[in-house]
C-alpha cells in the first residue's frame, strides 16, 4: 500500500519523547571496558625491550634508558593512532590503555607526554612543562 506521510505517527511519537541526543559535555557516556584511549606507562615495570617502539605504526613512542634498569617513555599522543599495539606487545604490562578520550588542547605540546621516575604515582598524565 503506497501512501504519503508514512512517518507521521513515528514523528509525532518522537515529538513527545525525550530526544536521543546525548548532552555530551554535561553527560558523559561511560566507555566500555577495554576502550582504547590515552596510553599510560608504568615506568617501574618496563624492562627496556623496546618491542613497543618496533611495532608502533606511527612511531609515537620512544623508550630511553635514563639510569640502570630505569626507563623513560615519551608518548606523542598527537601522533598516536590509539591502536594499542604497544599494549599488546608489552610482555610486562608496562603500558596500559585508559578510557580517557578527551585529549583536545590548545597546543600540540600538551599531547607530548613523558613518563619517568620523577613523576611519582603515575600522574605523568600531566603534559611536559
Amino acid at each position: 500500500m503506497k501512501k504519503t506521510g508514512k512517518m507521521v505517527s513515528e514523528v509525532l511519537k518522537s515529538f513527545m519523547k525525550k530526544p536521543a541526543t546525548e548532552l555530551y559535555p554535561f553527560v558523559k557516556n561511560p566507555k566500555p571496558a577495554g576502550f582504547r584511549g590515552r596510553i599510560i606507562f608504568h615506568y617501574e615495570k618496563c624492562i627496556g625491550c623496546k618491542l613497543c617502539m618496533r611495532d608502533c605504526p606511527s612511531k609515537a613512542i620512544t623508550i630511553t634508558k635514563v639510569a640502570d634498569k630505569k626507563f623513560e617513555a615519551r608518548i606523542n599522543l598527537d601522533d598516536c593512532i590509539f591502536c594499542a599495539q604497544c599494549v599488546d606487545n608489552c610482555a610486562k604490562n608496562a603500558l596500559e590503555s585508559t578510557s580517557d578520550y578527551e585529549l583536545a588542547g590548545l597546543s600540540r605540546d600538551s599531547l607530548k607526554t613523558v613518563f619517568n621516575n620523577e613523576s611519582v604515582d603515575n600522574v605523568a598524565l600531566r603534559p611536559e612543562e
Partner: peptide, 21 residues
C-alpha cells in the same frame, strides 16, 4: 540514531567505534 546501537556494539567488542583494530 539507530546506527548508534551497532556503533556501541563495535565499541564494546573492539575498543573503538571506527578503526576496530
Amino acid at each position: 540514531r539507530d546506527r548508534e546501537i551497532v556503533m556501541d556494539i563495535l565499541n564494546m567488542l573492539t575498543g573503538n567505534r571506527v578503526n576496530y583494530g
